[in-house]
Design a binder for these strands. Structure first.
Length: 648
RNA sequence: GCCCACGUAGCUCAGUCGGCAGAGCGCGUCCUUGGUAAGGACGAGGUCAGCAGUUCAAUCCUGCUCGUGGGCUCCA
């Protein structure tokens, strides 16, 4: 029979394995790097026979190499088996459960006599190396369900038995690695010799099947790469991510901190962090005014009755804080929408007034479980860049376009990767299917008109309306939700919002809740990690530091500082009795974008010597030219003209 | 809440197999007046997270409490 592999037509005997086919088609080197076969969508063991779909020409057969994404997944899954084999050799009473490959590695969940700890890693890793060195084959065997159940029952592997009972097919596949046999769909590497660069990373408790009512298992996380160099590269990346951790940088750069003993999950902003925040807030306010929003602000506390009316008391009570004033119950706001609606509803509105866009940098409190608090990224008190747009149904699509444009512009400004998703109607919902349909269509059409990529998250919408979510990725590759754009059918109804239409009748407006950066706290946390603490010049708390060589230069330095401040720059002078190198180093560690050196030469010429954050020195320039350069550096792409933050 | 690890000076971390608590950075004073990532000397600074237990003696061993970090919906 003839089949084509990598553009090469070869003759194979009936019943040949994929390995035999590749051996005939590939060079020795290419064949050696090959660990599995791909036929259509399916991955196959090299030892499995060439599928009939390939033989009759419906599918092509291609080799999978160890360093390809599929190859790495196989490697990691196989490494999980190697680890399980090692664990059972060292801890014979341990029961195995499941052990999949995950994004950057693998894990295996064990039911162990005692939970594993990192102290056990050296022994396990040594045993894994033995298994790898022996280059033992992964042998696939298909057996009936009954036989598999008998097999695992005999070994006391109750979790495997439980899994097999739930499998619908008549037969299951087993993989044997030395004496360790695991129920597994496969495929696997040809043999354990490919596991050359593996490392165990951490232990964790994990519930059987993720359900907290089940027994807690002991999970070991690890990773594996095609070779040692790739593994080391990955470990360095993890190191780099830890180096950029916003909690670490927040302390080192003196931006913010926490006092867990008195206010867990709530931020204390230090002067420099507060300055960054203030600049960001000012920028956001101006940008919103430019885009037709009006700024409003409502109270922090609202009577409980109002939260009952909105439905928050029924649906969100556990996450709210309550207090009592003169015998009346008040709730601390977890959201800003109620005040905005009260402001809208105060007078009768004409259709000509719409859309109304109320924006507020609103401080909200939400009671989060103590276990999930995480630096600035998950807190209990935070500030949303919130706004509510109240508009006519025919205005919805254009309004959504305006909001998404703002999302796009802001994330592009900061250089973030982001993904947009449209969440559609869930099983439990309120409002009519027609209204849902109309709003969902408006969201999708707006995205299409802006030509932005998005995914549909079926059934992920809030019960009160469809939404668009914007997620950005942090330096650890974690995804955080920032933007949200939600259509709301409930609240306008519950609060009886209306406008008088052209026909003189009352009509129900549509309300859009939206936040772009989401929470300023979270956003700043992500931003710190993104830029490793080196803020863009327009946000840097100190833009320029003047460094003197000796105290002879102090007076000139202070005059220069005052000049730069009058130009609207955030400048300061370091007059400490230290050597120049020491002060330059300090400024560098503080990630100040411009260091301006003044010594005898500069005293003479009336200029300053400029050193950039990256270490480059630019030579000397007049103060005027220096100020102009820094100001130009702090301009924004879509906010030309006076958007820098100035001291006044 | 549960699993693992951790909690020592403002920060980063040593340390004692139970016997007066250590370093570097930072901070203060003094000397030094220097040219682009650390000049020198001296000094201040600690209830070794908290509580209880074992012990002649506990920062160290045991238990509990509090807090921090990682993980707990990636499914044979």
């Amino acid at each position: 029979m003839n089949i084509v592999i990598e553009g090469k037509s070869i003759e194979i005997a009936a019943g040949s394995s994929c390995a035999e086919a590749f051996k005939a088609a590939l060079s020795g080197k290419a064949f050696k790097a090959c660990v599995a076969a791909r036929a259509g969508e399916d991955l196959l063991d090299l030892s499995s026979p060439v599928p009939s779909a390939v033989l009759d020409g419906h599918q092509s057969l291609s080799p999978v190499t160890l360093d390809s994404p599929e190859g790495l997944e196989l490697l990691r899954h196989s490494t999980a088996h190697v680890m399980a084999c090692a664990v059972q050799r060292l801890f014979p009473k341990t029961k195995v459960t499941i052990g999949p490959a995950i994004d950057k590695g693998f894990y295996y969940d064990f039911d162990a006599v005692r939970p594993f700890s990192v102290e056990d890693f050296p022994a396990i890793e040594t045993e894994m190396r033995h298994i790898a060195k022996a280059a033992l084959p992964f042998a696939r065997r298909e057996v009936s369900k009954e036989e598999a159940i008998r097999f695992f029952e005999a070994k006391g592997e109750s979790y495997k038995v439980e899994i097999i009972r739930e499998i619908e097919a008549d037969t299951v596949s087993l993989y044997e690695l030395a004496e360790f046999t695991d129920l597994c769909r496969g495929p696997h590497l040809p043999h354990s010799g490919f596991v050359k660069a593996a490392k165990l990373l951490s232990v964790a408790g994990a519930y059987w099947r993720g359900n907290e009512k089940n027994k807690m298992l002991s999970r070991i996380y690890g990773t594996a790469f095609a070779d040692e160099a790739d593994l080391q590269k990955y470990l360095h990346q993890l190191e780099e991510a830890r180096r950029r951790d916003h909690r670490k940088l927040g302390r080192e750069l003196d931006l913010f901190d926490f006092h867990e003993d008195v206010a867990p999950g709530m931020v204390f902003w230090h002067p420099k962090g507060m300055l960054v925040r203030t600049i960001l807030e000012d920028f956001l306010r101006k940008e919103h005014l430019k885009r037709g929003y009006e700024l409003v602000q409502g109270p922090q506390l609202l009577r409980r009755e109002l939260w009952e009316k909105s439905g928050h008391y029924d649906n969100y009570r556990e996450n709210m804080y309550f207090t009592e004033i003169e015998g009346d119950a008040y709730g601390v706001k977890p959201m800003n929408c109620l005040s905005h609606m009260l402001i809208y509803g105060r007078t009768l509105r004409s259709y000509r007034e719409l859309p109304v866009r109320y924006a507020e940098l609103g401080v909200v409190h939400r009671h989060e479980m103590s276990g999930v608090l995480h630096g600035l990224l998950r807190v209990r008190q935070f500030t949303q860049d919130d706004a509510h747009i109240i508009c006519r149904p025919d205005q919805l699509e254009d309004e959504i376009i305006g909001v998404i444009s703002l999302v796009r512009d802001l994330f592009n400004l900061f250089g973030f990767n982001y993904r947009l998703g449209v969440a559609t109607r869930p099983e439990k919902y309120i409002g009519t299917p027609e209204a849902w349909e109309r709003a969902t269509t408006a969201l999708i059409k707006a995205l299409e008109r802006l030509d932005l990529p998005f995914v549909i998250n079926e059934g992920d919408g809030a019960f009160y309306g469809p939404k668009i979510d914007g997620r950005v990725t942090d330096s650890l590759d974690r995804e955080w939700q920032c933007s949200t754009i939600q259509c709301d059918f409930t609240l306008p109804e519950r609060f009886d919002l209306c406008y008088i239409g052209q026909d003189g009748e009352r009509h129900r407006p549509v309300m859009v809740h939206r936040a772009i950066l989401g929470s300023l706290e979270r956003f700043i946390g992500i931003l710190i990690e993104h830029c490793a603490g080196a803020f863009p010049v327009w946000l840097a708390p100190v833009q320029a530091r003047i460094v003197t060589v000796t105290e002879r230069h102090d007076e000139t330095a202070l005059r220069a500082r005052d000049f730069l401040q009058r130009q609207g720059l955030r400048a300061e002078a370091d007059l400490r009795n230290e050597k120049l190198g020491y002060k330059v180093r300090a400024a560098q560690l503080e990630k100040i974008p411009y260091v301006l050196v003044i010594g005898d030469k500069e005293l003479e010429s009336g200029e300053v010597n400029i050193r950039l954050r990256g270490g480059e020195t630019l030579g000397s320039m007049s103060l005027e030219a220096t100020a102009a350069r820094i100001l130009a550096d702090s301009d924004q792409p879509f906010t030309q003209g006076g958007m820098h933050y100035r001291f006044s």
